[in-house]
Write a protein that binds this DNA or RNA. Structure first.
Lengths: 149, 149
DNA sequence: CGGATATCAGTGTAACTGAAATAA
DNA sequence: CTTATTTCAGTTGCACTGATATCC
């Protein structure tokens, strides 16, 4: 069986071993796993990232949340509309600065975050399943070096 | 200097070392380099992939090109509209099957592809610059193993 | 008939741009 | 006056869905 190992995604042969291509394919697989896992909870990446930075560093203005989470101010607005509608965060005017809203994680939001943390853990395992344990650490180290430019 | 190495993109601390996050950040950096390099030539990823499979495996129907390049039939139509307008490919009805177009790479298309191949080479180098040469091979091998599931 | 083909219209996610109103 | 904040509207690249007319 498996006489030849076929790549998971079709593409030009000249791209087969190229880092740009491999990264895009690997990230696509990762994104698919995330979309499935988070999607089952009705959540997208932006939602999780906002909940996480609220949990880690406390209430903040929307602009500050965007900086913490690496999300554009514009997209923060839309994501918070969603999160607020679900009762996962609350928005209140900042008494010290009338331009700002103070965004706070609710108890329901913290519960949702805990569940999503579990989903995320499971996805890491599934993503790295094709690698041996030492290879997983190698990959993480190499990607970190590649990214922390 | 550089007492602490700051991540290239902000994000929740709990995501910092996670494979899904690192892959998404690394792929984002790769995509940015590609968008810059290809964008300067007015080309997107789909265009390059179609030109490449035409060069590698010869003229074909649009559906077949989609299969070769890993691009949805629907997106093949739009990308070929572009490529045809630039004179990089030609579309002609297939005499043996009236449902099909035979798409052929033009001389201009082949010239454009050669230039893009050079751009792509340069991008690989730039992308992997933060790694030592042996680490680059390790990363490629690990990503290939992760992707060829 | 069952399938394949080309095309069009639309959706979704992540990321970004520009402009406007408001307030520090 | 300049800067920061929130919000809205729009765009891009990649990927996918569904429908339709046509043809094998």
């Amino acid at each position: 069986m498996d006489a030849d190992h076929q790549p998971s995604a079709a593409g030009p042969q000249r791209l087969a071993g190229r880092p740009t291509w491999l990264l895009s394919r690997a990230a696509a697989r990762s994104a698919r796993l995330l979309a499935d896992g988070f999607g089952a909870a009705g959540v997208r990446g932006y939602d999780y990232r906002l909940l996480a930075v609220l949990d880690e560093r406390g209430p903040a203005s929307q602009a500050e949340l965007g900086r913490r989470a690496g999300i554009d101010r514009s997209d923060v607005v839309a994501a918070l509309n969603d999160l607020e509608a679900r009762g996962h965060v609350s928005r209140a005017p900042d008494p010290t600065d009338a331009r700002r809203n103070v965004v706070t994680l609710t108890a329901a939001g913290r519960r949702a975050l805990t569940a999503l943390d579990g989903v995320l853990d499971a996805i890491q395992v599934e993503l790295l399943a094709p690698l041996e344990p030492p290879e997983r650490d190698q990959l993480i180290a190499l990607l970190a070096k590649l990214v922390n430019v």
